[in-house]
Design a protein around this nucleic acid. Structure first.
Lengths: 152, 152
DNA sequence: CCTTGACTTAAAGTTAACTTTAAGTTATAT
DNA sequence: ATATAACTTAAAGTTAACTTTAAGTCAAGG
């Protein structure tokens, strides 16, 4: 089954212009063309685009993805380099997730804060509350530290 | 304790120009100035900047953060709106984390893939492997689906 | 054969979030 | 008093990753 740029874009949920841009930037050197010059995407190209999407979500730039594609084009001699790359990406994504977890902790605290303020009808009380009186599950790392220091 | 823009930037790990930019964009209407016009950041301003950073990490734009700051400036009458905002941000971050988990699954698969290729000295075998022969813990959602369909 | 919609390229335009620059002012240490 | 480091503003510059435009070509249906 072959897809045009518009069909593949639809499947991936991106704009056709995005795929043309990726092609121009050297991310899709493997895409074949019809006699008339129309791009023909295969199932394998779809898989490759999924990997490109994965690398993008892991935080790689278009340029960095291009150099990965070039690596992959060289075949088996770059297996170790590619393994190394994916390991680094995995660590980067884990770090991103840790950071998002911290953000989530803060948001949970803020939700608790405004729920309390809503019950009170004012921010007055909750804003002046001692960290010790904040339910444990809503304490942020900083508030826990504040308590530690005050207990000395 | 009062901080200049440079000191506060250092504490937050951003450029002084970033804080000046935020101020210009209306994110810091609460910052006081010295007689000579120098910004003086307080501990409370630091807390506010942490909240701004949190909202940014949750995916809000500078403009959206500005409208939150304006809301907060109106006092208790906007408590419910602010609660609503933080609840939405919490959901957005949960979604981001789910997406990152999917990316991580793919990266784990890719690491397994290249580890196997490295052992083999070639991608040849692993690239042709049947999804059923991929260890369960490295299977992506798509590969699981492929197996389901092939079992019919 | 002709229309129509999707394709092609190259080049210019967009956007957000800063960052840099230039010209000048403030604060501090000697 | 003066040097200097950090501050001030307004305005221009940067960057990445697209997106749009313009002018033209291809492919499928009637």
């Amino acid at each position: 089954m072959l897809y045009t740029v518009g069909e593949m874009a639809k499947v991936l949920g991106v704009q056709p212009s995005t795929l043309r841009y990726y092609d121009k930037e050297g991310l899709l050197p493997f895409i074949e063309r019809s006699e008339g010059g129309i791009r023909m995407f295969t199932q394998k190209d779809y898989e490759a685009l999924k990997v490109i999407g994965c690398l993008k979500k892991s935080g790689l730039s278009i340029k960095e993805i291009k150099s990965f594609i070039e690596m992959a084009g060289k075949g088996d001699e770059t297996i170790e380099d590619r393994l190394e790359l994916f390991r680094k990406r995995r660590e980067a994504v884990k770090k991103q997730m840790d950071e998002l977890q911290e953000t989530l902790d803060m948001l949970n605290f803020k939700c608790w804060y405004y729920e309390t303020a809503k019950k009170d009808g004012t921010e007055e009380n909750v804003s002046k509350m001692n960290p010790k009186d904040i339910p444990k599950k809503y304490r942020t790392a900083k508030q826990k530290l504040d308590i530690l220091y005050s207990e000395k």
